[in-house]
Write a protein that binds this DNA or RNA. Structure first.
Length: 554
RNA sequence: GCGCCUGUAGCUCAGUUGGAUAGAGCAACGGACUUCUAAUCCGUAGGUCGCAGGUUCGAAUCCUGCCAGGCGUGCCA
């Protein structure tokens, strides 16, 4: 519908230029917006004010000229006004909006699906937490964000893959293996000193006990060097199982688990280094091999092979991202914790060195979660073992509330999460407000069923009965839903869905309190049933996109 | 030091990418259950959009400089 209106404006401007009523030149970008106030119409554009500078005329005059040139062939416009400093406000015919109610009813669950991403493959890589410890609450935020974003992209037509990259080799894995080994020795009563940089968490002891229980003392006599790998691998597999369980509980599904180990197995890392060397992007210095990331704007070159011969995490990452493109994705989205932001320039450099366009690769940073318990901040470090696990929070606060809470804020805004507060507010959490609207509508239909009122189908309803301001507002919200979802996908800002939901639920609650859906007036009842049915559908699919349930009763 | 992010009501945060009178929730105060669910609604109150300049018809939003907080600045991941 937006396209229809913008088309009309563009045609008018072109017409004016042809007739010499408007100055010729480049067409300025057209922005159409939904005015906040109803008195400003259904759509407004500022185009006349933008054009005023080179038209060398007052904006209002330019606006008047454009308005006179408008031809509404499709007959969707009720009237057009020039207002304020030079806005052109469009008032559409009422039928125009109501028509979408029928569309929403007809399409049911599929309403809101779009074609924005049709034919494009997107890989969303998120979370990718190292399997060196259980997921904590910060991971929860990234997981909730990544999942919701992937859902939305899928909804608007992209072919989406959700991938988790597992760093199952390297320094951290060695350290994990060593930590387990030392705890294992302690389990057998050996006096060993546990290093400060080891993984301190209780779970390491738990894994050590498991190893002891299953395999007895077979590792005691072996030298550390020979078994650290084995133990590290065993431990990471155990932890990975925990992570998968947690994610399942958090209603998050990945369709792909990609192991760093496999990159090496497939020889991809040496291969990519060879390729970069061939393009003269790699040089040797002080015994190490460096990638010339400064050529692409990074502040310094980066090591890919250390002096000791080991490749760096960055080297794997280059190979990994190359592989993403090789698997046929047009667009790569990485979601990282904000503490990795310094890593972006070198990754973008690598993407360009490989010959891909920078805009096909996008990193979204999710700010870390500051955890509080009462008035006191809880430090969160996997290594020291001081953290609150996602599992713990899910149990205390509930998955629905937890996921909604995470989606309430912009990704790049830091989040204070107070456990005491979250628990205390569990009953008044905004998620219940939205869910309650859904449950209320469900109960309307239960009542309707008892009174043997048939749920109307889309062709037997007179939607023009929906004339109340609240009704018109609600109809419009349902109508713009598909377009709104596209906006979320373009801006990559899924959190805005919660604002939309709260507005929608809010107006519905007010409407519900003031007016009755089921009444003596049969035609009105039908029209209102259709309205609330579509609202219910929008609530349900939106909550679904956020991974939150839409209960039939509460 | 340098780089990135943030700064909006007492608190936690939105603000449709530069629009018209800056919005919610919580907390406070006053009202509404004989009705399709009161986990709700209606009303009152609450603001120097960190500060100072700049850009233009127009700035919370863009540019510059300060101030404050967070993160980063490894041949760690």
């Amino acid at each position: 519908m937006k396209k229809g209106v913008s088309g009309i404006i563009m045609q008018a401007i072109k017409r004016g230029r042809k007739r010499g009523e408007l100055v010729d030149g480049l067409l300025p970008p057209l922005t159409l917006e939904y005015p906040k106030e109803e008195i400003y119409g259904d759509y407004a554009t500022n185009i006349a004010m933008v054009m005023a500078s080179y038209e060398k005329r007052p904006p209002r005059e330019v606006a008047e000229t454009i308005v006179k040139l408008i031809e509404d062939e499709a007959g969707i416009i009720e009237r057009v006004e020039v207002a304020g400093p030079g806005f052109i406000n469009f008032f559409l015919k009422e039928d125009y909006w109501r028509h979408f109610l029928l569309e929403a009813a007809r399409e049911g669950e599929r309403y809101g699906e779009g074609e924005l991403g049709k034919g494009k493959k997107v890989l969303v890589e998120f979370l990718s937490a190292n399997p060196t410890g259980p997921l904590h609450i910060g991971h929860g935020r990234i997981a909730a964000f990544g999942d919701a974003l992937a859902n939305i992209l899928e909804k608007v037509g992209y072919e989406v893959e959700r991938e988790y990259y597992i760093n199952d080799i390297g320094t951290q894995m060695q350290l994990l293996g060593r930590s387990v080994y030392l705890r294992y020795l302690q389990e057998w009563g050996k006096e060993v000193e546990f290093p400060a940089d080891g993984y301190q968490g209780e779970y390491v002891k738990e894994i050590a006990r498991q190893v002891k229980g299953k395999e007895g003392n077979k590792y005691i006599t072996l030298p550390e060097r020979e078994i650290v790998d084995t133990l590290g691998q065993k431990a990471s597999e155990t932890i990975l199982r925990w992570i998968k369980d947690d994610l399942k509980g958090f209603r998050i599904r990945f369709n792909s688990w990609y192991r760093e180990r496999d990159l090496y197995r497939g020889g991809l890392v040496p291969q990519i280094l060879e390729e970069l060397r061939g393009r003269d992007y790699i040089y040797e210095e002080e015994g190490a091999f460096w990638f010339k990331s400064t050529l692409f704007g990074d502040e310094k070159d980066r090591v890919v092979v250390r002096a000791n011969g080991a490749t760096t995490y960055f080297a794997s990452d280059i190979a990994y991202h190359k592989d993403k493109y090789d698997r046929g994705y047009n667009f790569l989205i990485d979601i990282w914790g904000a503490d990795h932001h310094g890593y972006i320039p070198r990754m973008e450099a690598a993407i360009q060195a490989l010959g891909y366009d920078k805009i096909s690769f996008k990193v979204i940073l999710v700010q870390l979660v500051n955890l509080w318990r009462g008035g006191e901040q809880v430090s969160m470090s996997t290594r020291t073992g001081e953290f609150t696990t996602l599992q713990e929070v899910m149990g205390e606060v509930g998955v629905d509330a937890c996921r909604y809470f995470f989606m309430l804020r912009r990704a790049d805004s830091p989040l204070d999460f107070d456990l005491e507060l979250a628990k205390r507010e569990a009953a008044e959490n905004p998620v219940y407000y939205v869910q309650y609207a859904h449950a209320r509508i469900a109960s309307i239909f239960k009542k309707a069923a008892k009174q043997v009122i048939k749920v109307p189908t889309f062709d037997e309803v007179d939607t023009s009965l929906l004339r109340l301001p609240e009704e018109r507002w609600l109809v419009k919200q349902v109508a713009i839903f598909p377009e709104f979802l596209e906006g979320l996908a373009v801006s990559l800002e899924p959190h805005r869905l919660t604002s939309y939901l709260q507005d929608l639920a809010g107006v519905f609650h007010g409407y519900y309190n003031k007016h009755r859906v089921i009444s003596e007036d049969k035609e009105m009842t039908k029209a209102r049933l259709l309205l609330v049915k579509t609202i219910k559908g929008v609530l349900q699919s939106s909550l679904g996109l956020l991974g939150i349930t839409a209960p039939e009763e509460m």
